[in-house]
Amino acid sequence: MATVQISEAEKVYIVHGVRDDLRVDGRGCEDYRHMEIETDVVSNTDGSARVKLGYSDILVGIKAEIGRPRPMVPDEGFLEFFVDCSANATPEFEGRGGEDLGTEISNTLYKVFNNPHSVDLRALCISPKEHCWILYVDVLLLQCDGNLYDAISVAVKAALFNTRIPRVQISEDDEGTKEIELSDDPYDCMRLSVENVPCIVTLCKVGQRHIVDATLQEKACSKACLLLSVTSRGTVTCVRKIGGGSLDPESIFEMTETGKRVGKALQSPLMELLQKEESLGKKRQKVGFLG
């Protein structure tokens, strides 16, 4: 389900609940739903993660490929995003039905992640003007239950944390032709720092207040949402108003303040969890879809 339709009475019930800081599922306005994260779930990738937020279910796979740097930034690699809104999530996405949503989300992901402030793109450069790593970040929507942006951003961050890029060496022969050699040791890998990688916090205006992590029902009561990407230090790196309605400057200011606070609070448990999961190493029982 990508959207739901609800009756006027239900809307009133939800809006009144939000006014009293008690939402339909018992949460307060700034609370997230239960989130589950697992990394290293697809072995054909260089990094992967699966995130469940409510019933929203996201799988992200990252593949690193060698390509040419962009002429404007010859000493940086880059990220490519693709969002697959699969028919598994909802029959509406069958055929080309999910393409619009997919493009909208991937465009936002480019803005949030594909810049040197979020990801160390220089580390992806192999030899300036000639070779760099391109990270293909493929997002797969398996189930939609609201707040896709936040869940996807967490999944992307977790997958970037999990990504291991093989080390390469450039050798030059007598005639000056360069050759790239991949390391023979599969464990000889480079990792990306995810310290500055932001997470997205989407705030939805419901009645006079705004809420975090809206369900589909709550989203249906909201006129407009504000999407913020926040780093672990509380810096806002991207702001975007989404939805059909309009917001007054004052609520945008208030929502930004809440977003900063919530985003900062989201980051440290996420990093803790990722580090803890990694420290288990091979002992970790992989759950995947069988659990």
Binding site: V42, N44, T45, S48, L59, G61, I62, K63, E65, F82, D84, S86, A87, E94, G95, R96, Y136, D138, L140
Partner: peptide
């Protein structure tokens, strides 16, 4: 509808289905 995740194969696929 049968589709494959773009990252499912050793070589990345450009389109999941179609």
């Amino acid at each position: 509808q049968f589709s494959m995740a773009t990252f499912s194969t050793a070589e990345r696929k450009r389109r999941p289905h179609g």
